[in-house]
Write a protein that binds this DNA or RNA. Structure first.
Length: 320
DNA sequence: ATGGGCGCCGCAATCGAGGA
DNA sequence: TCCTCGATTGCGGCGCCCAT
């Protein structure tokens, strides 16, 4: 017998037609059982603290489970059934924003540019495409992006709580900005192997995805091909072969591209010294960082930074 | 599809010189 | 002082070939 699914509706959260939005934070632990539930609104989830296992039932993909950690952001679309499981001793603090599409300033999103429409992939398109995309629609932000997002979330929370004159319009605008920014981070994130991997088989694809996920989040630490191969449960030789087959490049080249891309982003967003940025993205030697940067981007980090500060269009290539 | 052997290539680290 | 570039060196990664 299948479990009863709790169906949550707008009236549960006092959402109105004029302002269909609800903001709340909640703490969850092993003892507080949240039943499997679904809703007819969009749920934007920010993991603030702790960890949990997110359990997700989908008509398309069946039952999915994945671990969530601080900084993770994901969307639960209308009709999707989900809940959380926490092991004894485990706790999680989550920020939830429940809303209907009417909350978003559609004039800003849909009428102007195709680019804005593409940003909305994060909300509507990607989660329905394929099983792997469901996982990749969990955004993991770097420190700078997370700060931008959290500043916006704090503003929304402040407006929503204080409820001063005009707060509904301000929350709409802030939520629209938040979704656009998330869409931008989503489109800028490194592509998972599975999204372009057509040549390798299912089980292998999962293994490579696990490794690529590791590389994306540990790009600035030292690891060997041997360790990665172990993670993928295959020999070094086989791993290197599959990696090349899947990505079109070698492990080291892929890692360099990842590091340089992050370095480009940092150069454009901070005033940190080039040497510090090189170290931060995982290069032990500034000389070697310069060389790799120039090979990939087509100009030295200094030239790249100078180009940014002039505010002009950069001709340099993008690491990808 | 997968793994092993072998040899070459280039990454990564280090040092030094020179320019802005 | 900071950044870039060149030279050098040890060793790990990768391509090729062949076997299972």
């Amino acid at each position: 017998m299948s479990p009863t699914i709790l169906r949550l509706q707008a009236k549960t959260f006092n959402m109105t037609k004029a302002f269909p939005f609800y903001f709340f934070r909640w703490m969850h632990d092993h003892y507080a059982k949240l039943p499997l539930h679904s809703h007819d609104f969009i749920e934007l989830v920010f993991v603030w603290n702790g960890s949990a296992t997110h359990i997700f039932n989908s008509r398309q993909f069946g039952r999915l489970e994945y671990k969530i950690y601080p900084g993770d952001i994901f969307i639960i679309s209308p009709g999707e059934e989900h809940t959380y499981h926490l092991d004894p001793g485990e706790k999680v603090e989550i920020i939830n924003m429940l809303f209907y599409p009417e909350m978003l300033e559609s004039s800003l999103l849909f009428e102007s540019y195709q680019a804005e429409r593409e940003l909305m992939d994060f909300l509507y398109v990607q989660p329905f495409l394929q099983k792997e995309a469901r996982f990749s629609s969990i955004l993991k932000l770097d420190a700078i992006a997370a700060e931008e997002v959290m500043t916006l979330v704090a503003k929304i929370e402040k407006e929503y709580t204080a409820q001063q004159k005009g707060y509904q319009s301000l929350v709409k605008l802030l939520l629209t900005e938040l979704v656009l920014r998330l869409g931008r981070f989503y489109s800028e994130r490194p592509r998972l192997i599975s999204e372009r991997l057509l040549v390798v088989q299912g089980g292998t694809k999962d293994k490579l995805n696990r490794v690529l996920g590791y590389m994306e989040h540990h790009y600035n630490t030292d690891f060997s091909v041997e360790q990665l191969a172990e993670m993928a449960s295959c020999s070094e030789r086989q791993f290197a072969r599959l990696f090349k087959q899947a990505t079109g490049t070698t492990v080291i080249n892929y890692l360099h591209n990842l590091r340089i891309k992050r370095a480009q982003k940092m150069l454009s967003r901070t005033n940190e010294k080039i040497a510090a940025i090189g170290m931060e993205v995982g290069f032990h030697d500034i000389s070697f960082f310069n060389r790799i940067f120039k090979r990939i981007v087509g100009m030295s980090p200094k030239e790249y930074q100078a180009g940014l500060s002039r505010g002009g269009e950069l001709e340099g290539r993008t690491a990808d």
